[in-house]
Nucleic acid binder design. Structure first.
Lengths: 213, 213
DNA sequence: CACTTATCTTTACACTGACAAGATCGCAAT
DNA sequence: ATTGCGATCTTGTCAGTGTAAAGATAAGTG
């Protein structure tokens, strides 16, 4: 994969994406440069331009792939949950663990000033991820799930429940990532998340019950 | 303030901080460069080095000032609240409004990879801000407040309540900033925040009541 | 085979952060 | 008053970056 025989690479785009992914993990996205990615792929520094346009286009692709990965993690976590509460805990834990495992990806995914917000691939990937979260909330409320296609956020009440769940887990992941939760011992973090998720799950389920009566 | 007569500036440090603040608002912190700040202050490109060392030192100072500003906003918001629920709503609203009014400052404040985490001024400012949030939670629970000095997070239960409140409002501010809450109409955002804050306030107060019995 | 197009390289330019060395000034000690 | 010292600011330089333009090479198409 490093020694090229031909002038043309054949699969440079994919190799650049792999290199970019690796750079994010090795150097963070502050150390991410087009030239470094090109270097790792063994091509000239201007080669990425043809595939991604500019740095923003490149980062947008990487962010889209990261959303796909997050989506897969969330999906995997949901499959083995015995109760509504356990499912809520499982997806929360998966969200936070993704942020801890791929901190630079996580930072990049939520930097709309660095990304091309018009990119369809990024929008679709982000939307798929959100749908995962939404479906967990819908089940908490005892309502039918939606597929990615027919996603039409119904009532304001449902949106509010989705947002409150997302905001909490995202805020925790973000604050943890940026080292703002130092008052919590490292061993306490996972315990907190499980406890807090259980409380929120209880709140969502009980209030949904009230509405239906 | 622009026309310097003397070789020495007199108050260059402060003027550079003002310039940096302005650059953050005009160009975002992607457009933030030491040279641009120097340009706006009317000094040579290497002048900032003497006052801040390097770019990280400069940004750390700016982040510390931003935390001070956030702290003042939170404090001001808390002073006019008639009930525990209203106080919780007020501080949440102030937090989110700060993020919307100073999005680039907010981004910078939570980028520990760009900041000098050993800086005492930054640490103190961030800690003061957290203390404001903590005191609101303590009051929700009906417990005595703490000053900045004697801040000793007592029980795990209290920490958990502080963190759950902070995570939610921070997550909302962050997701809003990064344009991830597009399913919510612009007019609905403030309404959501007030509603969600009321729900969380209710949860914190009722569970605190249960524990005390 | 000729021609076109996609892919990659080379070259160039303006910009950046950091460093080093020099210029200027304020100020304290004498 | 003068001398010297240290703080402050400037100038010059360097490697590194993103982006653009133009050239080289290969692959595919008629």
């Amino acid at each position: 994969m490093s020694s090229r025989k031909s002038y043309h690479h054949g699969d440079l785009r994919q190799e650049l994406l792999n290199a970019g992914d690796q750079v994010l993990m090795d150097l963070g996205f502050r150390g991410f440069t087009l030239r470094e990615c090109a270097r790792r792929a063994g091509v000239s520094h201007a080669a990425p331009k043809h595939h991604f346009g500019d740095a923003r286009g490149f980062l947008t692709e990487l962010a889209g792939l990261a959303f796909e990965r997050l989506h897969d993690r969330l999906e995997a976590a949901m499959n083995h949950a015995g109760s509504l509460e356990a499912e809520f805990q499982a997806i929360s834990l998966a969200y936070v663990r993704f942020a801890q495992e791929f901190p630079e990806h996580f930072r990049l995914m939520f930097r709309c000033d660095l990304l091309d917000t018009d990119s369809p691939t990024l929008a679709v990937a982000a939307h798929k991820t959100l749908t995962r979260l939404s479906n967990v909330i819908l089940r908490q409320r005892g309502e039918p799930e939606k597929t990615v296609e027919d996603y039409k956020p119904p009532t304001t009440a449902i949106i509010n429940d989705i947002v409150i769940g997302w905001c909490h887990v995202h805020g925790f992941a973000h604050l943890l990532l940026e080292r703002q939760l130092s008052m919590m011992a490292a061993g306490e973090q996972e315990k907190y998340l499980l406890e807090a998720s259980a409380r929120l799950s209880g709140m969502l389920r009980s209030e949904a019950h009230n509405k239906s009566s």
